[in-house]
Design a protein around this nucleic acid. Sequence first.
DNA 1: GATGATTTGTACGTATGTATA
DNA 2: ATATACATACGTACAAATCAT
Lengths: 234, 234
Amino acid sequence: MTGAQPANDASVDLLSDRIRNALTDALANGEFKPGAALDEQALADRYGASRTPVREALRQLAVAGLVELRPRRGAVVARITIDRIMEMFECTAEIEALCARLATHRMTPIERSNLLRIHGQANEAARSADVDRYDALNRQFHEALYYGTHNQFLAEQAMTIRERLGAYRRTQLRQVGRLGRSIGEHDELVLAISRGDGEDAAKWMRAHLLNASSALIEFFEDGRQIAASDSPAP
Amino acid sequence: MTGAQPANDASVDLLSDRIRNALTDALANGEFKPGAALDEQALADRYGASRTPVREALRQLAVAGLVELRPRRGAVVARITIDRIMEMFECTAEIEALCARLATHRMTPIERSNLLRIHGQANEAARSADVDRYDALNRQFHEALYYGTHNQFLAEQAMTIRERLGAYRRTQLRQVGRLGRSIGEHDELVLAISRGDGEDAAKWMRAHLLNASSALIEFFEDGRQIAASDSPAP
DNA sequence: GATGATTTGTACGTATGTATA
DNA sequence: ATATACATACGTACAAATCAT
């Protein structure tokens, strides 16, 4: 569960790569809170390496948008505003809607039946309220649509954005009732695909993700902060 | 002309940043051919620095997809197949179509009139067959649409992809007749936006970029290779 | 296939700029 | 406001792997 970098993923015998992957996972899991300082020496100690590969990993993560690099002032976990999360959700919603539209016409019969199988399993997981299992199947479902576009580049873009939203997506699924509604939206999406109606599939996918977005925003406006703000008192 | 990295673009007093920017430009201009080896020491000499900042720059460019990093075997300019370029063009076409649709409804009057102004200037440049000027205005035109979506994240995504296609886009514009057709397509797009018909604007934008794609493919299938292949004889 | 040359990957040292007392 | 402490940025050194012969 690390990335959509094109090649290079093969041999991960480089320290800097291992550190980058470890940090990516840690960030996606919310292990480091937004705004938290990422001290090079501390990370070097944590991974039993010198500062050099840590620095390289941090620079790479900065390009991917996961950490913020302030020249000569160190790296912090990317601080993110609610507005930006909303922007990211809208972007995801539109790109995944696009994937749904293209995949509707391009999936092979095998891919289509695979999608249905995943959807069925997700339904079961939802009935037994197994959030973690549903989360995993949900990801599989969306990834099946990415690759169903038969456009590898687009699929990578979609994956990358989805990964960046990962930490926020999970909180949202745990809201009461959200899981059931999510399944319902998938139902409609799958029906539209089966009908071969790409535009309608896109519409349902967009609605699905915008609903998830709304759920998240409500959740946060119920008093919680997103970033552990460290800005000084005015 | 450097990038869509969120923050950090402010103070470029870091050597690694300057080198990264210089390399980005060099790559976009086709100064280094795909598949060409990027020797760390050679680049360090070229930029009057040590290998350390060069390495950091290369790692960053690898995340952005501009160079390919083979562990312990050095970095090469990202090799790209025609299929992948087609995928990238389709992805750009769809994402820019999306931008056009959103921008149609979201641009402020000022942004709209600015778009029209740029379009007018591009028309002039096209009439005088000033390809370089047209190229610059064309970029402004598309960027105006990105930011017209009022979704900063989406705009950054669009910019990043556009940059990655930069080196290939230019060759395509120099084909006979392509420039005139490009203007005609912009005309229709601008009309649709003025009418407030977002769906139609999206349609024209998609067509515009897919045409550019076709032009490029024909160009390459006329005997030219994309990557200076260095694979060994079979 | 073995050996030498070249280049990468990592560690470490030092200077410069930033934060803090 | 000045000085001290500290983290970063860059350079250099060396080990290990790749390549060329």
